[in-house]
Design a protein around this nucleic acid. Structure first.
Lengths: 249, 249
DNA sequence: CGCAGTTTTGATGGACCTCAAAGACCGTGG
DNA sequence: CCACGGTCTTTGAGGTCCATCAAAACTGCG
């Protein structure tokens, strides 16, 4: 698949890489990094462009360097469900399988760091640090996929929106190495339609529930995309989650 | 937690273990197996009994040896969503985290093979075969969690039921080393309520849709629990899945 | 300005939930 | 043997939340 919107960039060094401390390579020793550098190359995609179609042969695995990608699945009649939201340092692909199980799309402008699959799989066996980090990341992904299942299966439209906002707020705070707090604000990286694909709703319902939360004073909007959270506690109380569940003081 | 319904069985050898070829230990060399045997013990639970509560401290990880366990999550007002269905050889727990993120319950009578967590984590670092197999299993779990998300987010009640029946039919056939085919039959291991927790429905809706599929001739019932599938193709066509999606001939 | 993409708002209907009751199945004990 | 209670399942009636269809408002851009 050659695509005018996709660029293969020049090779860059890992030294200044923004995700070097959290990506799949974060545990690597200098010599392991050097072997990874030999099999890596960068690709960039414009917002909205496809990265991989379900069923495609995959000749690489990759890390998200900057931007956001979505994993999604489509039913026979076109209904689609987003099943993964990939942020910087998240991993794309599956060692040991050569066709992609899901569509991958660039939600925002996106740059990924690709590793040729065959040599990557060899490294996975020969250098344990990569496999250990990948296991850790995959277990984290599995936990958040399971939280997401509860959102999809049991929450009301309003709770779904509040949950999504809380997730983005939390990730955004973590990115800035802060705790989520009152008065925080962030840019919504998703269109209403992408949010509806994430939450199993229609875009109209997403719009209505965002308006409802605004009218209830739980959030404030600055333009269509910028969200201000006056009280993080109030937002959490709208998610339906059992806040102190499992926490025994 | 001491519980009259939970028994700690005598230590058994790995030699006759029914899951030795697919569990987390399936790649181990004889000497690695011996080290695992030193830190293992069995537990059994009756159907319906809790294995772990969310938030509990976990002193072990485990493999399901026989029976079925469910992973589930509960919202503040009691709504529950099943987020994992653990069959023989599936793995319970998370190395590197010491409190359980979800409830684990025995759906049927259940026996698990537990490994003390600390020494297991040490083995994970020292013997690569365990970690490699665990990574593979976790990636598979993640893929099926994502399929499940599409079921929860986008399918109708009827499609959800058909999807669940197709999943059970497929797993059952795999267990008997057969292909799913016409005329196959199987026992439903789940109550209507457990199915509703799995699918994000009410138990009444589950019952109604099973009746509807029966009246439509897609399935036949022998008692409440035994299901006969006259045409596997017909069942698949009810799931809403894009059957040949991604398959390019 | 005019157009395309995104978002908001409104009206209506339907799929599924809620509440309610009765039927089926199974083990226990008289 | 049948009565009895408990659990699971089915069926019914009515209501509600969200999807669908439709159109208008807003935004950015040539």
């Amino acid at each position: 698949m050659t695509d005018t919107s996709m660029k293969i960039a020049d090779k860059k060094s890992c030294e200044n890489c923004p995700i070097q401390h959290s990506a799949v390579c974060s545990r690597c020793e200098p010599d392991e990094l050097r072997r990874l550098e030999e099999i890596k190359y960068y690709r960039s995609y414009e917002a909205g462009q496809p990265v991989i179609w379900a069923g495609d042969h995959m000749e690489f695995v990759a890390s998200v360097v900057s931007g956001i990608a979505a994993l999604s699945q489509t039913l026979e009649d076109g209904r689609t469900q987003m099943v993964g939201l990939l942020l910087p340092s998240d991993f794309i692909g599956r060692p040991g399988r050569d066709s992609a199980p899901f569509d991958v799309t660039a939600v925002t402008d996106l740059t990924i760091c690709c590793f040729r699959k065959k040599p990557f799989e060899a490294l996975l066996v020969s250098t344990p640090h990569i496999g250990q980090r990948l296991l850790e990341m995959t277990l984290d992904e599995l936990d958040s996929a399971r939280d997401w299942m509860t959102i999809l299966g049991r929450k009301t439209a309003r709770e779904k929106i509040a949950s999504l906002l809380a997730i983005i707020a939390r990730r955004n705070a973590a990115l800035n190495k802060e705790m989520p707090g009152n008065g925080m604000s962030f840019e919504l990286p998703l269109t209403r339609e992408a949010m509806s694909d994430y939450l199993g709703l229609t875009l109209e319902t997403v719009s209505r529930q965002i308006s409802a939360l605004r009218k209830a004073g739980v959030i404030e909007l600055d333009g269509k995309r910028r969200v201000v959270v006056p009280s993080y506690e109030a937002l959490l109380s709208e998610t339906g989650d059992d806040v102190d569940g499992g926490m025994i003081a």
